[in-house]
């Protein structure tokens, strides 16, 4: 791992209900653009962002089948950020709050997203240069 600075992000929102989710992912992307290592603590609804069983679907109102609609999925955004980090030799760590995962039945996550707890958030923050938390409403 290079000696670039590390930023921690804590996030609480689920995949499809809030504009904050989009802004959060844009911030992660911008952090990698700035050559920062990234650590994410996904709390409450955010524990579903990395759920592996998210599936694209068609949309009859749009007149699109599944392939044409190419519906955004947060698991795909995470995978894309993981790939971007690898290309830039940056670390991109992701921990889901384990109890939040259990409650929602979203245990099946994409590779690179792990299970942890609030102590990991404090550890992440302690190991990082700076931290941003984004609560839910």
């Amino acid at each position: 791992m290079s000696h670039n600075k590390t930023l921690t992000f804590a996030f609480m929102d689920p995949p499809f209900e809030s504009e904050r989710t989009v802004t959060f992912f844009r911030l992660l992307d911008a952090a990698l653009d700035a050559n920062s290592h990234v650590k994410v603590f996904a709390y409450e609804g955010a524990a579903a962002l990395s759920f592996a069983k998210q599936q694209q679907h068609g949309n009859a109102i749009h007149g699109n089948d599944t392939q044409q609609e190419d519906h955004p999925l947060t698991k795909t955004w995470i995978a894309s950020l993981q790939k971007k980090a690898r290309k830039k030799a940056l670390s991109f760590e992701w921990i889901n709050c384990g109890l939040c995962v259990d409650e929602r039945g979203v245990n099946d996550t994409i590779p690179g997203c792990n299970r942890g707890g609030p102590a990991d958030l404090w550890r992440y923050a302690s190991e990082s240069f700076n931290t941003l938390t984004i609560g839910t409403r």
Partner: peptide, 18 residues
């Protein structure tokens, strides 16, 4: 602005609050 302004602030040690 783009959101890089937020990342620059975090990386320069500013207190960044949502």
């Amino acid at each position: 602005t783009d959101l890089d302004i937020v990342i620059k602030a975090l990386l320069s040690g500013q207190k960044v609050i949502w």
